[in-house]
């Protein structure tokens, strides 16, 4: 089992262990309140409006084919990404903040590789948080929430001119075969599972320090990212509990 494999496998463990109702979330934070990374220009008369860069959602929607293979569906995935970004624009939890959409760097941009590396690292960090905050605890982190993407986020800070970065990760698949399978698995565990689930997380990273200031894990039995209202619900659930 590779490093990524462990993450994914434990994500599953997290999913199965944590889930109870239809849409359940669990969040962790290391701050009570969000502050500007660069508050220099703020004055009492003109308070700094928090800028938040929305990273391209790491989303995959799949079909479980008859043979049991999950086959990512490009068109659905694309729709889901667009819908998520659109819905984030109107999200209650983000009111009063200035949202910046992350524009992918040009192919020749010397920072392109680092910006990509930050996004890949986020996936590894997210998997570690799911594994160790939801499934198997790390004794040294029992009362601590101190994961980070590190100082290299300075590149993202300068690139997007934002105080925080919001990362979204969602995995979804759709299939009648999958539903049967889930039910078998769930029944074997004595867990009542109706239909299927959507699993994902949202991560808020302080671009001044690189620290993960807030993390929310979502499991939803009814989530559907293929239409706007489903995406709105998913966004609401993903941002549930985000510090202001």
């Amino acid at each position: 089992m590779g490093i990524g494999g462990i993450g994914r496998a434990l994500m599953l463990a997290g999913v199965l262990l944590v889930l109870g109702g239809c849409a359940s979330t669990r969040d962790f934070s290391s701050v009570k309140k969000l502050d500007a990374a660069t508050p220099a220009a703020a004055t009492p008369a003109e308070p700094h409006v928090l800028q938040l860069v929305v990273m391209p959602p790491d989303v995959e929607l799949s079909v479980l084919t008859a043979g049991g293979m999950t086959e990512p569906n490009a068109a659905w995935t694309q729709t889901a990404k667009s819908l998520l970004v659109d819905q984030l624009g109107g999200a209650e939890a983000l009111r009063g903040k200035k949202l910046v959409r992350f524009e992918p760097p040009a192919a020749a941009d010397p920072n392109g590789a680092v910006l990509n590396e930050i996004q890949h690292l986020h996936r590894a960090v997210g998997n570690a948080i799911v594994m160790h905050k939801l499934a198997v605890p790390l004794p040294t982190k029992k009362d601590r929430f101190d994961w980070s993407l590190g100082q290299e986020v300075a590149v993202l800070h300068d690139y997007a001119h934002a105080d925080y970065a919001l990362f979204i990760y969602v995995r979804d698949s759709y299939s009648s075969a999958g539903r049967i399978f889930t039910q078998i698995a769930a029944a074997a565990l004595g867990v009542g599972l109706a239909g299927g689930q959507q699993a994902g997380f949202a991560t808020l990273v302080d671009l001044g320090t690189g620290n993960v200031v807030w993390f929310n894990f979502l499991v939803d039995a009814t989530g559907d990212l293929r239409d706007a209202s489903g995406a709105a619900d998913t966004v609401k659930n993903l941002l549930h509990g985000m510090p202001q």
């Binding site: 599953l12 463990a13 199965l16 198997v136 605890p137 790390l138 399978f181 698995a185």
Partner: peptide
């Protein structure tokens, strides 16, 4: 075998703990 795999994983996750 998939179900078995998941159960095995759960057993692993459930029984083995990280130690400081």
């Amino acid at each position: 075998s998939r179900v078995v795999f998941i159960l095995a994983l759960l057993l692993l996750t459930g029984c083995e703990q990280y130690q400081q």
